[in-house]
Simulated scan of single mutants.
Amino acid sequence: MRLLVLCTHNSARSQMAEAWLKHHARALGVDLEVHSAGTEKTYVKEEAKRVMAEVGLDLTGHFSKTLLEVPDPWNFDLVLTVCDQAKEACPAYPAETQKRHVSFPDPTGRPLEEWRRVRDALGRLSLYLVESLKKGQIPPDEALKEASGL
């Protein structure tokens, strides 16, 4: 299965979600190819690298990219958006696929504790999603949001 995580800048939330999803898929033996992208290419924020390193997940080598820089961008089984579509330019994915949306607050400019809160919520959602995928299920948005604890 191929999964894409979309966010506005691909600099924090989508990068953290990508790392969590890959981690949980490896740990649970789920064949899952995970990519992340954004509407605008920027850079992976240092705070994201720092808080992920605190839980043993290394974002070294991660880089911000647009959808067109992702391999085979129009062929994903599941697309997860993680930014607030009402307040940000969270991208829409035009190709036919399963789509899920859970809005996570943007921790940019906030204390590290807010980064950790978003990191942990993304970790909980990612674990629940990978466990569900292992059972052959794609949970609805509401279940994913509940799993995140936000």
Rank of each mutant, 00 (worst) to 15 (best):
A17N: 07
E142I: 04
E69M: 14
E96Q: 12
L78F: 10
A89F: 12
K87A: 06
C83R: 13
D106N: 00
L32D: 11
E96V: 12
P140V: 04
G136Y: 02
S132F: 02
E18A: 08
C83I: 03
Q85N: 12
W20K: 03
I138M: 05
A17S: 10
K145Q: 14
D72V: 11
Q85M: 13
Q98D: 14
C83D: 09
L80D: 15
T97M: 07
L125V: 06
R13N: 07
S132N: 02
E47M: 02
A121K: 04
K49E: 08
P94E: 03
L80M: 13
K134M: 05
I138Y: 03
L129A: 02
K134E: 00
G61M: 11
G61Y: 07
P105G: 04
F104A: 10
Y93E: 01
R50N: 05
R117E: 08
G29A: 06
V102Y: 06
K135S: 02
Q98R: 14
V70S: 05
V30P: 05
D58T: 09
D141M: 07
V44R: 06
A143V: 01
R116L: 07
Q15Y: 11
R116P: 00
H101R: 13
T108Y: 15
K65D: 13
L133N: 04
V34P: 13
K99C: 03
L127S: 04
L122R: 05
Y93C: 08
P140L: 05
A48F: 10
A95D: 06
K65M: 09
M52R: 08
W115H: 07
L125R: 07
Y128L: 01
A37K: 04
A89I: 08
E40D: 08
R110Y: 15
K41A: 15
A19D: 00
Q15T: 00
S126H: 11
A121L: 04
V55G: 06
P73D: 13
I138G: 05
K65W: 11
Q15H: 09
K134F: 07
E46W: 07
K134P: 00
E69C: 07
D141W: 09
T108F: 11
V79L: 04
E142G: 01
K65C: 12
H24D: 05
T39W: 10
W74V: 14
K65H: 08
Q98G: 01
M52C: 05
L112E: 15
Y93R: 05
K87W: 09
V82F: 00
A27I: 04
L21I: 03
A143N: 09
L80T: 01
E114L: 09
T66M: 15
V79S: 02
A25C: 06
P91D: 02
A25H: 03
E142F: 03
A19G: 00
L144K: 03
V118G: 03
L129K: 04
S36W: 14
V34Q: 12
A92L: 15
E46F: 06
K135E: 15
D120F: 00
K41V: 14
E40Q: 14
P140G: 07
A19V: 12
L21R: 12
L32A: 01
G136C: 05
V118S: 11
R124A: 06
E47H: 07
